[in-house]
Design a protein around this nucleic acid. Structure first.
Lengths: 216, 216
DNA sequence: GCTATGCTGTGATTAATGTAACGATTGCCG
DNA sequence: CGGCAATCGTTACATTAATCACAGCATAGC
């Protein structure tokens, strides 16, 4: 019912609100939050409405309360654990990036098929062989898989994840994955993104107008 | 005029077509290409229409010709060069990822403010201090900047890029950048993406239906 | 040559997404 | 204590994107 884009914006709002909270700000107006998130105030109000939080016309939104509401909406009560598969250059960078961000969403294990990597520890995550995915998933209650293997192996890895009962995949392999409709896949295709920028950079040079307000 | 999503799909089609060409396939039907790209056949036909290529009802699209058409549409005739700023964990992985992919879109320089990294070479890209960005941009004709610095420095780096005449930015820093309308920014916010997957993985577990057909 | 088949190209339609507009509400200031 | 200014909540509208559906063609088979 709540769209993908709304969820993405809520996640962004939460982080921005966290910064405000750190700075000691108690409340924000929709237009202030909109400005830092680079969206319209109406969009912010609509998104806030979607999670059932209510502000006051005079104070706007109470920062701490709104954060709490977004937490309640986005986070699983008992937290969620993720595993990363493919500890190459990109995989290692992602482990470093994701490690220790939020207790509610933590990276707890990594997998690779290279025996030289198995047994090593990456930011607190032990590396196991890919064959160990299913049992490890069960014992650690892993809900999310991050795929960072080469394109040629991505589908096979996705199949393993699906078979092990994973319902959410963040896929960095440049291949559209074939999974059942019960599994959510978010593809991040870095090559596509770069080529997109290249194209629009060109069109910006020609006519000096933006094709569409960029966001994310 | 041509939308962001269309460009992203064209980039994907091109790669898929390249694989077909390597396999010796001479022609494809829209439904075949649609299947590997995980979109509808009508979508493929529309996208192909957008670049002005025409297939034949009996043979479908000639693979080599269609690739050529997409190249003509997406690529700059004289090629485009990119630079990456911020050679941390993620930055290094990205350099490795983007290096030597396509001659038409090559990474030629990297920048960092850490003196220990300056002077080093990353996959053929010399590392310069960030202050050198503008002159290097001019001498190497850099059109695209990839920002992989910490959030706290991202805006300052973006300002440098804009001032140096960059019109396309691929931003990995988790901050919405403030740039003039003549600059195209594509934000890849990894935290947001992971939280999105976490949320939908949860909703998949509850009701066994997908909220929307996933693509990219 | 003629018909049947299956595909492309594209206008029409539907769905998704974002924006604008405006009544309702709250506190402030005189 | 009452109007004023500013903001929220929500419905209505606009815009964009994706799908449908079918006319028009090209080929293959007879």
């Amino acid at each position: 019912m709540t769209s993908e884009k709304t969820i993405a914006r809520l996640s962004l709002y939460r982080r921005l609100l966290g910064q405000l909270a750190d700075a000691g700000t108690a409340s924000v107006y929709s237009h202030q939050l909109a400005k830092s998130a680079r969206v319209t105030p109406a969009q912010v109000r609509r998104d806030v409405m979607a999670i059932g939080y209510h502000g006051s016309p005079s104070r706007g939104y109470m920062v701490a309360e709104l954060i709490k509401s977004i937490d309640d909406f986005l986070d699983a009560p008992q937290g969620q654990r993720a595993a990363l598969i493919g500890v190459g250059n990109l995989g290692r960078a992602l482990v470093a990036y994701f490690s220790g961000r939020r207790p509610q969403l933590s990276l707890v294990a990594v997998f690779d098929r290279d025996p030289k990597l198995v047994g090593k520890n990456f930011h607190g995550c032990p590396c196991s062989p890919v064959e160990q995915f299913a049992p490890t998933r069960n014992s650690l209650d892993i809900a999310i898989a991050i795929i960072a293997v080469p394109a040629s192996e991505a589908q096979a890895v996705a199949d393993i994840c699906v078979k092990a009962g994973i319902h959410g995949i963040l896929n960095f392999a440049p291949v559209p994955l074939n999974v059942p409709a019960t599994v959510y896949v978010d593809n991040i295709d870095l090559t596509v993104e770069l080529e997109k920028v290249a194209f629009f950079a060109r069109s910006m040079n020609r006519r000096k107008t933006r094709p569409a307000p960029r966001r994310r």
